[in-house]
Design a protein around this nucleic acid. Structure first.
Length: 447
RNA sequence: GGAGAGAUCGCAUAGUGGUCUAGUGCGCUUGCUUGGAAAGCAAGUAGGUUCGAAAGGGCCUCGGGGGUUCGAAUCCCCCUCUCUCCGCCA
């Protein structure tokens, strides 16, 4: 959500943002509704003021005067009832449009239509260290090379009894899977490693509700945009469009729950930044990606994720520092695992409506012969905080909306794809990354 | 699943149709007092929105929504949440 005052004063900036982000919204219509809404409100409020005044006089009046006044009030009532009906419908339309007004992207965000417009920002591998994207020769050295015929994670998972998608599909349906044996230990080891790291960095740890209400998903910006992507559940007797407040949903990330923890709160400036780290199951319907990544555990309906969220004061410089800081934490995770990756600066057409700036981190996945997204780092400035009413009192005593940011720490089993494939050996075994060995209890996974 | 009680200005509490512009206590802020402090005294102590250059008005908010009424914290309906007891249960 943007401030309506900002939209009034900068309609061209907002139109440009909508165009670049490919959000279909008529800003002129919004401003027209805003105008109508305000003039209706003014009219209605002056009627209300009359009513309030007369109501106070009535007890003191003579019986006759009283009668006359009451008749007048009936008319005022009728008029105000009419206006209320009009205002209600305008309000509803206004609210719907306000909910989809996109945030203004940062000056560093490339303008582009879709993922093809994303720009590599940096590369890293254990061999090369950080690599500038302009250094083409070095960039070519980032991916792991193998001097034998590689297997994909599906074949490796099957051969070593780590992943069973056939049984998973039988039990759960399309995109179902079981993790087994060392893969289970690896997943929990990754989560444990991530949680310890985040705690050491001063983040408060949370397990979060996965089953959430409408407002949390609206607040994070997952509604109304990505409604198809989210499973709706609840008491069948209560499920309905009109009663969205009662419906519950399976969240696709712990971000909505972490943000909602502070909804409707008034923080003090010294409380900021609030650093949160959530671990939860995540559910995604993957409607709209039929036929994409249909094999293995790259794109699945349920997974586990450790997520980082920061609420900081309303200062663009400070928020950018946190975006970079959270990116570094995610990179540290991949460096701990010694996995090659790249960071992309995400373009306007590929970022959500609420985002100011966004990086994706993609980890090398040999069977795809490409990098695959494993982390997503976003600065949403006050766009979410306005939706969730998360404010703080600054040192001058002024109330402001916080800025919100979020990034992945680790998501499994997707990260297991990179681990299994990058660490595979010629003999079909898999070396366990050093940091996971205490959790897995061995150095090599083999038949 | 059953029965009952409740939700009021940061906290606690009063308030049962007009005197509520929501009182009181605590907390907090400022001032007076004091060598300094405590105590005491005095004043202040929410948010949103709208009109206005400002000063300052108007409107809304007593869990949320709707209704009755000229007028609702107060009466009615629906919802959410909390607590107590019973039942069931990981």
């Amino acid at each position: 959500m943007l401030d309506i005052k900002f939209i009034r004063e900068n309609p061209d900036k907002v139109k440009k943002a909508a165009q670049d982000k490919r959000v279909d919204i008529d800003i002129d219509q919004l401003l027209d509704l805003d105008q109508k809404r305000r003039s209706l409100m003014a009219e209605l409020e002056s009627l209300q003021a009359t009513k309030n005044k007369v109501s106070k006089e009535i007890p003191q009046l003579s019986a006759e005067d009283k009668k006359a006044r009451l008749l007048e009030m009936k008319e005022v009532d009728q008029k105000s009832d009419e206006l209320k009906v009009q205002l209600k419908s305008i309000d509803a339309d206004f609210g719907k449009l306000m909910a989809i007004v996109p945030n203004i992207p940062s000056p560093e965000t490339p303008v582009g239509p879709d993922s093809s417009g994303n720009i590599p920002w940096s590369y890293w591998s254990p061999k090369t260290g950080h690599v500038d994207p302009k250094d083409k020769d070095k960039v070519a050295q980032v991916p792991n090379k193998f001097d034998f015929e590689i297997k994909d994670h599906i074949a490796l998972g099957k051969a070593l009894d780590l992943i069973d998608t056939e049984a998973g599909t039988k039990t759960s349906g399309f995109r179902g899977y079981y993790l087994k044996n060392e893969a289970v230990l690896m997943q929990y080891g990754l989560i444990w490693h991530a949680l310890k790291k985040m705690q050491e960095k001063g983040f408060a740890l949370f397990t979060t509700p996965v089953l959430v209400r409408d407002f949390a998903l609206f607040g994070s910006g997952h509604f109304p945009f990505g409604k198809d992507e989210i499973y709706q559940i609840g008491n069948p007797g209560k499920l309905s469009e009109d009663n969205a407040k009662e419906n519950q949903y399976l969240a696709g990330t712990s971000e909505p729950s972490l943000l909602a923890y502070y909804s409707d709160r008034m923080l003090k400036e010294e409380d900021l930044p609030v650093k949160m780290c959530g671990v939860s199951s995540c559910f995604r319907s993957e409607i709209g990606s039929y036929g994409k990544d249909t094999k293995g555990v790259y794109r699945i309906h349920e997974f586990v994720k450790v997520e980082q969220v920061v609420l900081c004061k309303a200062d663009i410089i400070e928020s950018e520092k946190w975006l970079e800081g959270m990116r570094e934490i995610a990179e540290e995770m991949l460096q701990d695992l010694k996995l090659p990756y790249r960071v992309l600066n995400i373009c306007t057409g590929d970022m959500g409506a609420g985002k100011y700036k966004m990086y994706d981190i993609e980890t090398w996945m040999p069977s795809r012969n490409d990098f695959g997204e494993t982390h997503s780092d976003s600065n949403l400035t006050d766009w979410q905080a306005r939706r969730l009413n998360i404010r703080y009192k600054d040192h001058e005593g002024k109330n402001k909306f916080v800025y919100t940011l979020n990034n992945t720490v680790v998501a499994s089993p997707r990260i297991l794809i990179a681990i299994l494939e990058n660490y595979q050996q010629k003999d079909g075994s898999i070396i366990v990354p050093e940091i996971l060995r205490p959790y897995v209890g061995k150095d090599v996974i083999k038949k």
